[in-house]
Structure formats: C-alpha cells, structure tokens
Nucleic acid binder design. Structure first.
Lengths: 386, 386
DNA sequence: ACCCACAAAGTGAACGATCACTTTTCGGGT
DNA sequence: ACCCGAAAAGTGATCGTTCACTTTGTGGGT
C-alpha cells in the first residue's frame, strides 16, 4: 500500500518478443545473477544517505523536491525494489496473513476469493496454508505459523484447541471461523439453518404434510444445523416427518435415502443436505417411479451451477460464500488494526425456488381446505428467485 | 523440512478449556506481550553459543549428546521457535513459492490443491496471489513478486509478457502454466483436445453421422483446442457437422445453441464444451421435444459431481486437475533445485461414458450396414468408465 | 549581525539469524 | 609427556532496512 506511488512510477519497458510454448525458464543466469541493488546503492547513486531513500519510500515527507527527483532517478536507473524480507525484519510487520484450512479437500475457492480480495484491498498478502490431521496437529501448525514471525494475522477456517490462546507470544491476531468444533457444536455463520426453516414453512403452506430429510456428514456443523432446523420446524408446524437419513453429502447417499423408505411412507417433500444429495434423491425417486415434483418436491443447497439446467431444475439455497470469506477476513483485519468491524447483518442466504418444488399431489393434500394454486413456486422457468 | 525433527519435539501442553463461540481474539495482551525468545536467549540458557543452537536447528551435526540435550531443554523451556523472517534474510532463502492467478474468478481449487500439496511436500509455503487486470499488469506484478525477495519461485497460471524474462535480477525460478497466451495460441496441458477426438470416434463408430459442437469462450485455449479438435476430427472421419456454436461456457449458451438450430438439421450427437453447457444442451433438446439420448447424444467435460445423478447421467471427461497443478508445481521445484523433472506421461484425461450417449435413432443410422448394439455406451447404470 | 526555531538530511544501532572463520577440547599414537 | 588432527564450540561480520537520535542547513525576526 505504501509502495503504491512507487509502483506506478516504475513502468515496464520493452514489450516485444514472443512467448515460447509451455516454457519453464530458470531465469537469471550467470550474467544476470548480479546482486539486487540495495537501498545503499540507491543512496550512493543519488548522493544522499540511505535513510533519505527510506524516507522517500515510506513517504515520511519532508524531502526537498530536488532530493526527491534525485532519488527517483536513482531508483529508476537501478530498477531498485525494496527487499521486503529485510523490511519485515526491521519493522516487525510482514503484511502477510495466513488462511489456515482444514484440508484442500472440499471446495473453498469462493470463500477464499472473498477473503483474499478483502485482504488484498487492505494491503496484505495472503498465504493459504492447509493443515491436514486433527485439531491437535492443526493447533500446532497455527502456533508455528504465528510464531514464525511471518504472519501478522491468521484466519483459521478450522477449529483449533482453546489452549492455543495462551500459547501465543507474538502479537498475532487470530480469527477462527470454523465450520465445526471439537464438541461437535455448531460455530459460525455457515451453520445457520434458517433457510431450512423457511423452506419447510413455504412447503407446508403449499400443502405439504409429509417431510423427509437427507442429512449431510454429521461431522460438519452445517449438516447438524440443517438437521436440527428440520427437526425443530417439523415439530413446531406439527407436520409429519417420515424420518431423517444420515448421509454424507454424496449423491449416492441421496439415492440410498430414497431406497431406504418403506413403500407406503412416501414423503411429499424431501429436504436434501445439498444439491448433490438432492440430485441423488431425484434419481432415487425416479427409480421408484415417483415424479418430481408431481409426487415429491425436492430441495437442495449450494446453488450448484448445473442445478438450474437439470430436469426438473433444482430448488436450492444460494450461499454468499464470497461475503462469508470476506467477512471473516474483515474481522481479522479489524482486530489487527484495533478498529471496529462493522457487521453486515444482511443474510448470506437466498432461497431459489425452481421446478423441483411444487404443490403436493392431490391425494396427499390436507382435507381441511382447498389451497390456491402455488404462485411462484409452481411457476415454471429456469431460476425463479424468492 | 529442516525443522521437522524440531517440530516433533515441541509438543503442545495444556489441552483443556472450552472454545468460545465465534470468537475473535486479540491474542497476546499486555502480560504476554513479552518479546519472543531469540536464539541468543536459548544459547544463554543452555550455556552455549548462538551458533551451536543454530547448528542444532539446522542439523549440521557434530554436537555432543550432552549439548544436544541442554539445547533441547532450553528450547522447550522457552518455547522457542526460530524467526523465519530473520532466517530468510540471512540465508536468502524464503521457502516460499507464489502461485499467480489470473483472477480468483473461475474455480481453480483442485488445481491449487495439487500444486499446494506438492509444494508442501517439498517444504515450501505457498502464497496464492491473484492479479487482476491484463497481461501487462500481471507481468508487473510478477516482477514485483520476484524482486521482493519473498519468493524463491513463482508459478504463474496465467501468461505474462516475454520481456519479463530479461527483467528479473534475482535468482527466481518462474514457471508459466497458462491456459492461454496473448496471441490466443494454446499453451499447456489443459488445452489438450484429444478426448474430443476419442469421443467423436467412438460416437461415429456407434453410427452417429451428424455432429454439433457448442464451444466455450474462445479466449480460453482449452475452448479453442476442443473446437479445433472437433473440426479436425469431423473432417477426417468424413461425418457431417451441422455447425459450431460459439458459446461462453454457460448453461444458457447450451440452450441457445440448440434453439439456434434449424428444425431439419437435428444433430445426432452434440459435443458440449463442458458439463454446464451440456446440461443446457439437454434442457434445450427437451424444449424442442428431442429425447436424450434417444434422439440426440450429448457429451460434457469436467465431470461435475452432479452430472452422475442427472437424468440422463452425463457422459463427460474427467480431468485430473490435482495432477495438473501438481505437475506444474513439480516443474517449478525441479527448476529451483536444478534437478530433472521426470515427466509423468500418463494421460490427464479419462472419458466417462454415461447415459447421455447412446446409439443414434434408427432413422439416422447409416444405411450401409447394421451395427451391433452398443455395449458399454448404451449400458445403463450410474458411472460407466471407459 | 545574531540567535532561534524548524526543516532536511545524516549516523549508528538494531532486528534475529547464519556464514566463514578461528579457537578450544579431547582422544590416541609414538 | 608430547604432538597431531579431528571434533566441538565460539567469534565477528553480515543480510537490507528502519528506528531513534544527532547534525547540518535555512530563513526570519529583532
């Protein structure tokens, strides 16, 4: 950030030549292997002291115009760039943040994108560090990272041991934004199950009365939160639940779940843990001769791109992962700078009603009274938002 | 890597306490703000010289057992961890590699996962740096990164200006593994279009004679390579092509492509640029009353998880992105260490035949002779590999 | 002229580790 | 005893930058 002006000053030259195909180049051979110019070299060339150059670089001001020009010329001539490692050493600021991840296994890229962009805007580099193993290994890794002096802050997307808090010596801010903790308690925004509540309410209003839930891997707080929201809501509304199938986020588990149902207990609506499971559920339903949404409505979660083009297109929950990541990073940076982090209370979730949900079949509608045709829900089209 | 033994030695203690919900903690308050112990502190406590401690840390050997023990104890007692910034400064080795990305927009996580794992195994940290803007901005960013002294190597997943090669002073290895270059020429393994050739050959062998291609965004070498492979193969085999629709990787473009076809030129097989496009194509085909695969066969690319559970399940190309990323990183590390990088010639692609491809409808079969029923291709089931 | 205050630039030390040497220790052969 | 050589440990310099402080330059007021 401080180098911004300087960066703009040093423009590249020589934009010609052709790019070899698939090249790997050991750049800087014997001839170019000369040491990089240092601040002292610049100072000597400009006829000033290193400290003056440093002042120029850090914008400490108080430089005469003539001096500024001499320094600028020297920098340009030598193509000098400050050595960030040395600077870090002296200032004890690295301008780096780490994102600690449970593993590179699941798909965090959108979250990372958000976090990365926010950090970048604040002038930080971001390291993505994935730590395999359990909580304990990860905690140790966190300590290592924190104490290595390489990072000013660490954003952990996975839980660490509480004791870590006492073990940090250095001034390193740490933000934990974990999807699940050790006691299997839900943590963080991802675990928010309210969309499940809303979906069930809407479906119940449409006349659905027999629900079924295919849960995700219970290791994940999000899966547990959705399951719990399902159970709570079903009970609160007094609608029937034919049960919960404990799956593992996979499409196969969706098929399995449907197969596991006794033939007379066909649900009218299935809440799947995510879109992949929902796709499995749809496939399983077809296998049993159930039409979706004619006989059974199905909802997913994640708003997978393909879901919009499936037949039927998939009702789902769109999660603003970018903002989720960005929020976490903003929290970290706020802590780092001792400023207040204004919390953005806007919901991260948006239910997208599509073709896979509709009114229940006539035979399954409650007798009490006739419902009006479902408006947006039964509406056709690709991608109805609600 | 060098610290491995040391890491194992320093085991955490105190594993009790509870984890607050969603906490952000400014760790290291006034009381713990004491400076981190340095190598000198350790040396003093152990009654040896700093150099001896350094030797211990770097495994330079030649330490008496008694000395080793004293140093180990001192390290443990102080909970000392070496300051990597200081070490980097002296050794001029940072142990860091950067991955430069065109933008965090598309979904690179699997590729990153592969690259990250490989780097990690070789003892490097990995920074993911996304550089927006054009080639020129990215090139400048690359120079900045290289000259900052923070990175030993840079893996660019996007093209940079050739002139960059001459501008690097420091010994920084750079590997470019770009999907497309400036002159829109294909680069790298991603651009390999051979699976398209194989798919068309197989479909032609099944009796298909009228093909159609929905291409991806022509900015991408991979899209261009697939289109070119399509055109070449169609010509070589002497089968009819009803044309190529220039899409943009989106599902909508798949629908559009089908809508754009004149009613009498229904293809018997559509090669879509990726699974999302393929899903759009299937949807578009339904819209026109064409059955998939009864009337039209459709192939995708990417092996999206949901594709397996769609109806019909999607024939697709599985790309080993992890290995792709890992290969690129391995190349970088090999360059860094002046060792030879053994190239893994195994194909990165695997065609997965599923329900969306089958024999063409009888009316469209070539008259010359009767074909045997399609074996694996017409085979039902979820996920037939071939 | 003189002094003073403030602006501009310079000095030496320090950040924490490792490198290239030098010095000390120690065991064994004659 | 003596010396030698290898093993073990220590010393001072150094990496490139910035911090805290000191020195030099500059202009204005009386």
């Amino acid at each position: 950030m401080n180098d911004h002006f300087f960066r703009q000053e040093c423009v590249l030259s020589g934009l010609t030549g052709t790019l070899a195909k698939g090249w790997v180049e050991r750049m800087a051979g014997a001839d170019t292997a000369r040491r990089r110019p240092t601040i002292t070299d610049v100072a000597r060339l400009a006829g000033v002291s290193p400290q003056t150059v440093s002042r120029f670089l850090r914008f400490n001001g108080g430089l005469k115009a003539a001096t500024v020009e001499r320094v600028e010329n020297a920098i340009r001539e030598l193509d000098y760039r400050p050595n960030l490692v040395a600077r870090s050493m002296r200032t004890r600021k690295t301008g780096r943040l780490a994102i600690l991840m449970p593993a590179m296994a699941f798909n965090p890229s959108r979250m990372l994108a958000g976090a990365g962009a926010t950090a970048d805007a604040a002038g930080y580099f971001v390291d993505v560090v994935s730590a395999g193993g359990g909580v304990r290994a990860r905690s140790e890794r966190l300590l290592e990272l924190a104490d290595s002096g390489q990072f000013e802050g660490i954003l952990s997307l996975a839980p660490v041991l509480p004791s870590v808090q006492n073990q940090l010596h250095q001034r390193t801010a740490v933000v934990i934004s974990a999807d699940f903790d050790d006691e299997m308690r839900g943590i963080g925004e991802l675990a928010d199950g309210t969309p499940v509540v809303q979906m069930i309410e809407r479906l119940a209003a449409l006349g659905h009365s027999r629900f079924f839930h295919v849960a995700g891997d219970a290791q994940f707080a999000s899966a547990r939160a959705r399951k719990q929201s399902y159970l709570d809501t079903v009970e609160r509304l007094g609608v029937e639940s034919v049960g919960v199938f404990d799956g593992d986020w996979s499409g196969e588990s969706g098929i399995e779940a449907i197969r596991s149902l006794p033939s007379r207990s066909r649900p009218t609506a299935v809440i799947a843990a995510n879109d992949l499971v929902a796709a499995g559920v749809v496939r399983g339903a077809r296998e049993r001769g159930w039409d979706v949404p004619g006989d059974v409505s199905v909802t997913g979660w994640d708003n997978v791109a393909v879901g919009q083009f499936m037949t039927p297109s998939l009702t789902t929950v769109d999660v603003d992962l970018e903002r989720l990541g960005s929020n976490a990073m903003a929290k970290l940076i706020a802590g780092l700078r001792d400023t207040e982090h204004e919390t953005n209370e806007e919901s991260l979730f948006r239910i997208i009603w599509r073709e896979s949900t509709a009114e229940p079949p006539p035979a399954d509608r409650p007798d009490r009274k006739r419902r009006p045709p479902a408006g947006a829900v039964a509406g056709a089209g690709v991608g109805q938002t609600g």
